[in-house]
């Protein structure tokens, strides 16, 4: 199978340049940073001092659902940034250096080339997300209160769809431009633009992928999967697939033209 060969080559490559080590570690750090620092916030404030005598600070008590949101918001900002930067050169740098031409001289189909890269990145990001959220789930349980393993799995699956969408955007821009830095810039711009549009037209665009986190929050509180969450997931999957197909077409067009 040609596809498996390309996929294995890609997995090997990601292992050699240590992505399989550092990306999971970074996501673990991001996911547990806020749960731990908020837990120790009273001690930190006390240590820093500088408060007038008798000052009383009321810190909110966090429910497990709030703690999940702390982890997700870190992953959505810094986590997405790291993932975009990690994936920005996947195809772009190979085209720049001419490696992709070497590969594509052989009878390798464009579809296999792109989808193998996409799948290898998804495997990496989903695995990293799993260990990151597992660490966050562990800390939530020992520091704040019970969060069932079933909730954890649902959070993992639904949030994974958001990262799948992010990866699809990056792959798409990878086929469009050859400069890795520009790929990262355009990807971040797109994600930020979508988030602004979603906020402004929130009443119309209810199922924007950017809303996944807030529906996940509702799910953790209510304890059940809402129809909005399912619809948003379907939209996220559909958009990812559309981007993937568009990537194959732009890549074909660019390579044939170049």
């Amino acid at each position: 199978m040609q596809w498996m060969t390309l996929f294995n080559k890609e997995m090997m490559e990601n292992w050699r340049n240590k992505k399989w080590i550092w990306v999971p570690l970074v996501l673990i750090l991001l996911a547990i940073l806020d749960p731990i620092s908020n837990y120790y916030l009273p001690q930190i404030i006390e240590a820093v001092g500088g408060l007038p005598d008798g000052a009383i600070i009321n810190l909110p008590e966090f429910a497990p659902a709030d703690v999940v949101m702390m982890s997700l918001s870190q992953l959505s900002s810094l986590g997405v940034l790291v993932i975009v930067l990690m994936a920005m050169g996947t195809i772009a740098s190979e085209r720049k250096s001419g490696v992709s031409e070497l590969i594509l001289v052989k009878p390798v189909s464009y579809r296999n080339y792109i989808t193998a890269k996409w799948a290898a990145l998804l495997a990496l990001v989903w695995a990293a997300l799993f260990v990151g959220l597992l660490a966050s789930w562990y800390y939530t349980n020992i520091l704040y209160g019970d969060l069932s393993f079933k909730s954890f799995l649902l959070i993992f699956i639904f949030y994974g769809l958001w990262l799948t969408f992010v990866i699809s955007i990056v792959i798409f821009y990878n086929t469009l431009v050859k400069t890795p830095g520009l790929v990262a810039f355009l990807s971040i711009l797109t994600i930020m633009g979508m988030s602004i549009v979603t906020q402004i037209f929130g009443h119309i665009i209810e199922w924007s992928p950017n809303n996944l986190s807030s529906y996940i929050y509702e799910m953790v509180i209510a304890g059940e999967v809402s129809s909005d969450l399912v619809a948003t997931s379907v939209v996220a999957i559909a958009l990812s697939l559309i981007l993937l197909i568009a990537s194959i077409f732009t890549f074909k067009a660019k390579e044939l033209a170049g």
Binding site: I21, L25, I32, I36, Q43, L143
Partner: peptide, 22 residues
């Protein structure tokens, strides 16, 4: 003394691993 090191230690260990691998 008030910090429970079993909670904070994994954080420091992961930072260490990251640096060693790099």
């Amino acid at each position: 003394e008030s910090i429970n090191w079993s909670i904070v230690a994994p954080f420091i260990v992961i930072q260490g691993i990251l640096m060693i691998v790099a």
